[in-house]
Nucleic acid binder design. Structure first.
Lengths: 328, 328
DNA sequence: CATACAATCTAAAGCGTTCTAGAATTACCT
DNA sequence: AGGTAATTCTAGAACGCTTTAGATTGTATG
């Protein structure tokens, strides 16, 4: 049933060491033998056992990947970037997936430790900075879209992104701008801060509502805001999913966007580009983030002793139809 | 740096065999020693090396997962189901991701072979039936949402789903119904057949346009249809992504849904539920499919000799605002 | 033709677990 | 006590590869 390297060696009439060398086209195998070996392997349907080879070899070339949530397309984009880059440097990826409830972060990272990945790339970690310190020395981590002390990171300038969004709203003439902010988790405070600071600079009082990552929760929280007598003229959310939730609530009340209320999201997911949605949003260039993270992972792999590297990319604001001046 | 089982054994003053037993709380370790071992392991930050344990152990408990495309939420839903079920039976999942271009199917399956997964669950395979036969004997496969001869499968009744969609359109009074069909890949012909048969039963000529999996392509193909003099009154697409592409094209021409044209999708992704989109669609219950596939994978794992099992679940039609009677 | 040197191949020792067999200890009965 | 049975533990052989050191062959050189 399962064919091993020794089987191939026997069939090709060589030692199994030579099969090993032939497979990694290492120096020291004559061209004819290499071809014979590869041919018999092919005909026997042989694929090297990854467990055995990684166990035996000193050097490790696998990158672990943690993605918070497959339902949020931004992680799919990041993964595209990682895969693209990993592919170019010939690395295999081992993928683990978390959950927006946050209770899978630790098991997922542990599984990467057990898998003995060379370096792990994590996008969307919800653990606190302090909790993550427990992985120092056990797992080399490149954090995506978040800076974690002591680890490498490729972040997006969230303060800038939020600032651009809020200033766009201020320019349109909005004053009552509410921010549906992400839970105050370490590393994800930038959007919140950008909002607060921009409001303060404009002499306005920030109005923050903390909201999780699901569309449903955002819808539930937006309801009361919309029903209040001094309804905000604009709602800025911490990601697109929650912006869609706000749209749900707006729609359920028979209100219209942008006439009755302006909605601005964050992430530029493909749903935001739908006709009928057309959401003004901030693009954090997730593919680039992912690609750069994988590059840094390889760098880290080759230079384990370097100081933690932190790189910050700038997002861009995409103005679409969901934002307009408030009605007088 | 990296702590091994022997290290833990030495620190706890026992043999490494006993550490192994303690970790899998197998029979034969006294409670006090077990606790001592676990405690020292914990304090040393020890996590068993997965490579080594899988290499050494006869029984294998990992399930491989192949998902075609992380950008299509239906695969995220299926994964949720698989994870839920795998978690309950204490199995680890190894995830690989393909691509809608189809050229990653083979490498991804090969990587599952190399990973020596016990059973692989594949959702969205694009390889032909014939090409997949090459994996027989090398990889036990449970196909999701597609029946592949010789392998286990949990499928959705696509003929039924398409039939429900088309009959809904016929009841509304539509006659010129175009189907944006998926490429005629083995295993994905059901929706096409359901459409064709229903049209024929109604005495109408089917109008099929083959369209890939991307929103962009659907938009490009829908354009000419919309510009034609005898514009269809309804377009039924093979999935939601492509339905959104059709909406893009409709919108770009200043047409309205459902007044000017009815659009029906397939998959019930979360974008289809957006206000302003509100797409009539078919729900194939992806979470259930995923869950059931994982259950069958475990069944297969325990009974390798059984004949291939095929299970078919029924989809349901969700009528929303994107479908309405054609204007007279 | 011997010598040196490169090219090609192989034997065998790991890698960090699990598993099998059996040794050492403890508990239980009569 | 003495013997049997259960419990608790350990040594050492796999698992399927990689890697190192060395054996063998071939080729060029003086």
């Amino acid at each position: 049933m399962k064919v091993t390297m020794a089987d191939v060696a026997r069939a090709a009439g060589v030692s199994s060491a030579l099969v090993s060398l032939a497979f990694r086209d290492a120096y020291g195998v004559s061209k004819p033998t290499r071809e014979r070996i590869l041919a018999t392997a092919e005909s026997m349907g042989y694929q090297p056992n990854r467990m055995a080879s990684r166990l035996a070899s000193k050097v490790d070339d696998t990158l672990g990947v943690f993605l918070l949530d497959l339902h949020n397309e931004v992680f799919a984009d990041m993964f595209d970037g990682m895969r693209d880059s990993a592919h170019q440097s010939g690395r295999e990826l081992v993928l683990t997936v978390g959950s927006i409830s946050g209770d899978l972060d630790r098991p997922a990272l542990d599984s990467l430790v057990r898998a003995r990945v060379d370096v792990a790339i994590a996008a969307g970690l919800l653990l606190s900075d302090a909790e993550l310190q427990a992985f120092r020395g056990r797992l080399r981590l490149v954090s995506v879209a978040r800076v974690v002390p002591g680890f490498d990171a490729v972040a997006s300038d969230n303060v800038l992104g939020a600032t651009m969004a809020v200033e766009h709203l201020l320019e349109l003439g909005h004053r009552r701008i509410v921010h549906l902010a992400s839970p105050p988790t370490d590393g994800y405070l930038g959007r919140r801060e950008g909002y607060t600071a921009s409001m303060a600079r404009a002499g306005l009082t920030p109005h923050l509502v903390t909201c999780g990552y699901s569309r449903q929760e955002a819808s539930d929280l937006a309801g009361p805001l919309l029903d209040a007598p001094d309804r905000p003229t604009a709602i800025f959310t911490h990601n697109d999913q929650t912006a869609l939730g706000v749209l749900d609530a707006v729609h359920a009340r028979g209100l219209r966007v942008p006439e009755d209320i302006t909605v601005v999201g964050y992430d530029n997911t493909s749903a935001s580009k739908l006709p009928g949605v057309d959401l003004t949003t901030v693009d954090l260039h997730p593919v680039d983030l992912g690609r750069r993270a994988a590059e840094i992972a390889v760098l880290r792999s080759n230079n384990p002793a370097l100081e933690p590297m932190v790189e910050v990319l700038s997002p861009s604001l995409l103005v679409r139809a969901s934002s307009a001046p408030p009605l007088p």
